[in-house]
Nucleic acid binder design. Sequence first.
DNA 1: CGACATGGTCAAGCAGCTTGACTATATGGC
DNA 2: GCCATATAGTCAAGCTGCTTGACCATGTCG
Lengths: 147, 147
Amino acid sequence: MQNSEALALAAALLAAAGDLTQRINDGVVSRGFEARPAWGFAFARLAPDGATVTELAAHLGVTKQAASQLVDEIVRKGYAERRPHPADARARLVVLTERGWACTRAAEEAAAEAVREWTDVLGEGEVRALRERLGRIAPYGPIRPAW
Amino acid sequence: MQNSEALALAAALLAAAGDLTQRINDGVVSRGFEARPAWGFAFARLAPDGATVTELAAHLGVTKQAASQLVDEIVRKGYAERRPHPADARARLVVLTERGWACTRAAEEAAAEAVREWTDVLGEGEVRALRERLGRIAPYGPIRPAW
DNA sequence: CGACATGGTCAAGCAGCTTGACTATATGGC
DNA sequence: GCCATATAGTCAAGCTGCTTGACCATGTCG
């Protein structure tokens, strides 16, 4: 593979990621929620059982302060709430509210809608293969900003 | 495809894009250049024959002022220079210097190196197919930030 | 030639992140 | 039981990269 091909792959990857992110965000907004794309990663971490600010920060790859600000915002807008941590009086458990869950479902619907357009172009098997291959080359650990 | 699958695809795409971007940037830095990931898109537009600030802004999807700041920086660091535009006295043509070209080549090498690791996992044909499919679903036009 | 469009810059402001300092609680050695 | 140290979280200040708004110089077209 030529060097310039590799750069083109990077560009295509970023373009696809940006496009999909934009579409998901638009879809979420059109369903009556306001959300910044970065929230998706926060919600994904909060979804199962909640998380502390520090855990969230590690997951997002930012400082505790930045994570705390993000939590401030989603709490202020009613998507999550801070509760006392059951086992550690220093910590506070951030959990999604019902509205937060609704927003998460909206994001899933929007994502499915966006991916459906890809399915129309590539076919379902190809899209599934795409997802599987991406998963193999970039395990989904802590988030690193795309640039 | 289930809704949650679609979100997982988006996450995998962003993770892969972020990972690749990070690796390319690291590779460029280790070759003795300092570059911010966003520069890649600027350099790509400047590479053939130069571009005006306005063209660059449109390509990057930001304001003229932001593009101008970016140009200030890469000029200050010796990667490009502003020349009078041959056909329009209002405009100034931003062109890469020899150092700019060297940095571009370093980015291509770094990208090739990063993609090579993927090739080891997926095989060359798969990676090529990945690039081709990504190209089909997200034509590489103006850049939209990933989030 | 004059009216408007376009390329570019200057200035101010804002959002999201950082580092640094601090308080409150937890943990482990003695 | 107590103290030293580590950890969860917040407050405050600052930086960077973007934005909007205003402006000048040049081009284009009636």
